[in-house]
């Protein structure tokens, strides 16, 4: 069985979010880059757990990004990916990224494609669905549990106001979130092994981006917190009712 795990690069949660060039570009200075947590903690770790039960499974990582992404790809290999493909392109258009991944997926005959629920920078939740459509595969979004049978997968997923257990024939695309697996730390053996694992760089397929970020804005600065004495909840209720108008 072959599993393709989509890996995205995002700023660390604690990074300062700032913009430059008249708010048209994200300011990457002093940003610490990490593997998107949903991709790493849930989809990649679940793929590794499946491989630990069945050694015949291979895990291929796919990433769309420049050479500056190599450290996070090596980290994913250190955690337990077998090989990686980096598509040498930069884009914030979801269709462009999904179409590049679909091209790689077509060449590899994967039984299972994992993505994270969303990236923590653009929060679109779009890549899994688009890749599934471009490959004409079923898509199970927002999985909280994932088990493999021989030719099917049993997936618990979040639906509006509850959860549902689905059985899906493979191949399929699944987006993973909390519950599917737990975060791991790479060990020294993994880090050493990752140095020699194959990381193939391929040039992108010519695909036109369908969206473009025109500008960014930071939310208006908060006026500052208004403190209300613990003994005066009538005042808090008045403020919420008359000033904030939320109750």
């Amino acid at each position: 069985m072959k599993i393709l795990v989509c890996i995205s690069k995002t700023p660390d949660t604690t990074s300062k979010i700032a913009f430059k060039e008249n708010n048209t570009k994200f300011d990457e200075a002093s940003v610490q880059w990490i593997i998107n947590p949903y991709d790493e903690w849930y989809s990649l770790v679940r793929a590794i757990e499946l491989k630990e039960k069945d050694a015949s499974i291979t895990i291929t990582l796919v990433h769309v990004g420049g050479a500056d992404s190599d450290p996070i790809i090596r980290k994913a290999l250190a955690l337990g990916g077998d090989e990686a493909v980096r598509i040498n392109a930069q884009s914030d258009d979801t269709y462009f990224v999904a179409a590049q991944i679909a091209e790689v997926a077509k060449q590899g005959n994967y039984d299972l494609i994992f993505t994270g629920k969303e990236t923590i920078d653009y929060n679109a939740s779009a890549i899994g669905g688009m890749v599934a459509e471009l490959l004409d595969l079923p898509y199970i979004s927002l999985a909280t549990k994932f088990e493999l049978n021989s030719t099917t997968a049993v997936v618990t997923r979040e639906i509006e106001g509850g959860e549902e257990v689905d059985e899906v024939a493979l191949p399929a695309v699944v987006s993973c979130q909390k519950g599917v697996a737990e975060q791991r730390i790479p060990n020294m053996r993994g880090i050493m092994a990752a140095r020699t694992k194959p990381l193939k760089v391929v040039e992108p397929t010519p695909i036109e981006a369908l969206t473009k970020i025109v500008s960014y804005e930071l939310p208006p600065a908060k006026a500052g917190v208004k403190m209300v004495p613990a003994t005066d909840m009538a005042e808090l209720v008045r403020l919420l009712h008359e000033e904030a108008r939320v109750i």
């Binding site: 979010i17 920078d121 369908l210 969206t211 473009k212 970020i213 960014y216 930071l218």
Partner: peptide, 14 residues
């Protein structure tokens, strides 16, 4: 974007 820390204005060109 950025999990609620900012907004982006995104042009759709298709």
């Amino acid at each position: 974007v950025f999990s609620g820390k900012a907004f982006a204005n995104v042009a759709i060109t298709s």
